[in-house]
Design a protein around this nucleic acid. Sequence first.
DNA 1: GGGAGCTTGTGATATGTTTCACGTGGCTAG
DNA 2: CTAGCCACGTGAAACATATCACAAGCTCCC
Lengths: 237, 237
Amino acid sequence: MSGTPRGKAPQMAIRRLSMYYRTLAALQEQGVESISSEHLSTLTGSTAAQVRRDLAYFGSFGRRGVGYEVQSLLAHVQQILGIGEGWPMALVGVGNLGSALLAYDGFPRQGFRIVEAFDSDPRRVGAVIRDVIVKPMDQVKDTIQERQIFMALVAVPARAAQAVTEQLIEAGVRCLLNFAPVTLRVPSHVYLASVDLSIEVEYLSYLLRESVTGSADFANDAAPNGSPSGVQTVASG
Amino acid sequence: MSGTPRGKAPQMAIRRLSMYYRTLAALQEQGVESISSEHLSTLTGSTAAQVRRDLAYFGSFGRRGVGYEVQSLLAHVQQILGIGEGWPMALVGVGNLGSALLAYDGFPRQGFRIVEAFDSDPRRVGAVIRDVIVKPMDQVKDTIQERQIFMALVAVPARAAQAVTEQLIEAGVRCLLNFAPVTLRVPSHVYLASVDLSIEVEYLSYLLRESVTGSADFANDAAPNGSPSGVQTVASG
DNA sequence: GGGAGCTTGTGATATGTTTCACGTGGCTAG
DNA sequence: CTAGCCACGTGAAACATATCACAAGCTCCC
């Protein structure tokens, strides 16, 4: 009670919370007991005010004049993000990328685990990767419903992604992380995030090109800035 | 001449341009010759006004009353993003993820190509994946300088990422795409983008948790909205 | 017990991005 | 040639997000 959770938190604030979480976890392992917003911001490439504001969307977790207790803040952020609920995840598409996802140890470390994998290729079905048996696509619905899986990773070729997505949603999946380079359509009660390598690379390409050419040759205006501008660009200190 | 390139384009506008690019490329293959901002927006999960504004940052590419010629717009967007310059890329870290990146055919299709790969593990050095020979780390500097590589992908374990990054920058790399779950420090003349699976998954986890619990139990306010809110969430139409 | 010094939490402010709404130019048909 | 419609391009308004700057609360020390 009390607190000041105000309105809704911006999407970017949530993403930053993930960074704070990770950093706090590392600090805890190092035995650090307390930290200031200033220090946490330098470790995460943010600013002190930003850190405090991000946390303020959810409550008041520090002590004035002192800072934040690492353990306690970690626990709060963990709860906010819903980590530790141990959400089981399903993977569809066990190609190069899908296999890499199965092997990715960042997920289990954060409390997420791929517990089911599916593929339409009969040559892959039956394979066991990291204790997970690859099942055929026709078992998607039953398996996901039975195991109450709400999150799924889509690592199939672009042309198959929309159909797979619809199958998953029909089976009850609420959250999708899409790796295919397509724009997926999902109903409004389903949450979608995408990892799109082409977009990232092209963004870098744009920045590089912009920095090489005056800033344009689409139009010959006076270039107003030699902007660093980068979304996640962090200057070394 | 003429045009209205105004100020600088927002980061998100550039990312959307990538989506327009991809969609336009598909349309061209289908033989579609012209398209309206309205149509393009539905295909990319954007809005008509947004599409027009995004393009307006760089010029005026359509015809009033008509729409955009697919071929011409495609060429313009391609030039804006710097695709087709055929930027060669280097990859550091040929583990599960690195191998998947080498095999990812979205890069060559967009005009980007991984031409060099490095790894610190002697057991991986010498391997040939997709015509690329894995070289040892001590050849990073010479190779990158010689081949004039400006973009690199960092797919090494978190603990090694900062050191690898510094090596790459010293060798002359200007753009980095980081896959390690850490906050990298880079000088301000270097561009950095990150693909962070934990952040994406945790963001979904947050949304899921928020939708399940009233919207919080961090603080018992009246929940002001049952917000869909998703960054890249697109309602089916 | 009181004052100095520190760091949080937060109104207010500044900045940035998206959306609206309409003027402009362009096409088609009669 | 003119009327009518269409879709772009864009100033201005609305909205969202980040930053500033300071009051409130805590600790320590004298």
